[in-house]
């Protein structure tokens, strides 16, 4: 400890952070090690007194914010907590959702479909759609928004809530952030981290794991991919 105070900062802070010491017997390392232990003990004691940032505390927060008029009071859906529990249970598992769907371009989306039939289509401008949702121009409900949104998949089927729950849980479990957008026609699931920038339709389908069978059934696969983009698969 006889060194100039600002000398050996790298060694001192490295030791403080618990890095491997290259000179453990030096007074600098010894002092930093002692400070580290003292800080750990102090932090541990203080942290033990800190209230838990629990779901109940979050609910109290939301309640107060609604009371202050800062949040809408109409959001009573309990979907996310349920999803979080399910996602935790499914974490680390690569999941596949089989859906009877048909791929179409947005311009070809039919106005109505049979109740038992499901549809998936790709939105070529998900960012615009998201902007519209966030600006309130669209009647939507957004649960979670992601950065660098690159893909929108819209699903219609007779049990949309259950389907959305499944796919969303699977996506979250796979570490893929999603947006669930409820519309009069069904639910849109906006997904990120799945496709490269400016992909063509075949690349999107291949990357998403959507493959058409002869009967028109489409396999919708949620990949366990990290990051925001992935290399385009070889065709």
């Amino acid at each position: 400890m006889s060194e100039t105070p600002n000398s050996h900062d790298s060694e001192w802070f490295g030791e403080l952070a618990g890095d491997v010491s290259h000179n453990p017997n030096s007074s600098v390392s010894q002092q930093a090690g002692a400070v580290r232990r003292a800080l750990q003990a102090r932090a541990s004691n203080l942290d033990a007194t800190a209230p838990q940032a629990s779901e109940e505390m979050r609910d109290r927060m939301m309640f107060r914010l609604k009371r202050e008029g800062l949040l809408d009071g109409e959001q009573k859906r309990r979907m996310l907590p349920g999803l979080a529990v399910a996602a935790t249970a499914l974490l680390g598992i690569a999941l596949v959702a089989d859906v009877a769907v048909r791929l179409q371009q947005p311009a070809q989306i039919p106005a109505t479909r049979g109740a038992a039939e499901s549809h998936v289509w790709l939105n070529e401008s998900p960012s615009s759609r998201l902007d519209a949702m966030l600006s309130g121009e669209a009647e939507s409900k957004v649960d979670l928004v992601v950065p660098q949104l690159v893909q929108v998949v819209t699903i219609q089927r007779d049990d949309p809530l259950e389907f959305v729950r499944r796919v969303t849980v699977e996506a979250i479990a796979a570490g893929i952030p999603v947006v669930v957008d409820k519309t009069d026609q069904g639910y849109r699931i906006l997904m990120d981290g799945l496709v490269p920038e400016s992909p063509d339709q075949a690349t999107i389908k291949a990357t998403l794991g959507i493959t058409s069978s002869a009967s028109g059934t489409v396999l919708f696969q949620v990949h366990t991919l990290g990051g925001t983009t992935v290399p385009a698969p070889s065709q």
Partner: peptide
């Protein structure tokens, strides 16, 4: 900075 459920989601996040 948005409103409605988007803001709710932001607060939760």
């Amino acid at each position: 900075r948005a409103s409605g459920s988007a803001r709710n989601a932001g607060v939760k996040a």
